[in-house]
Amino acid sequence: MSTTTETKARIQREDFSVTDEIEAIKKSSKNIGGIVIFLGTGRELNKGENISELNFEHYPKMAEKKLDEICTKAIEDYKIIDMSIIHRIGPIDIGENIVLIVAAGEHRKEAFEACEWAIAELKRTTPIWKRETTTKGEVWVQATP
């Protein structure tokens, strides 16, 4: 059995391949038996407003640091084998990928729990901000559940 505690968190402008990220994490251990992902995508409606474009910005260094901390804590607290997080920044069209969390465990239960915790923690602790362009203009989004 080979396992790793190396974390993989990154922030990037370009899109990512969900399949490639799942295949990458599968390589971290032959003991992985369950993989849970959260994929956040750009939606057209928010609180009744039509959105034409999303734009994300982040605080470089701190945002990457917080994502790394989430991966490390998820592995420690939920006893999963590995986790990766990717968050995009810059302009994002409706329907495009925004964020991906991949939690890999020996069994599904801990992977589900770790993935749910990680997206909530990302929203709570990671300095990333979303600006929506609607028919009424540009709006910086306040924290969402």
Binding site: T41, I98, T126, V141, Q142
Partner: peptide
């Protein structure tokens, strides 16, 4: 020092 408005990442 960074002044941080409420975060809204994560889709």
């Amino acid at each position: 020092v960074a002044l941080l408005p409420p975060f809204s990442g994560g889709a």
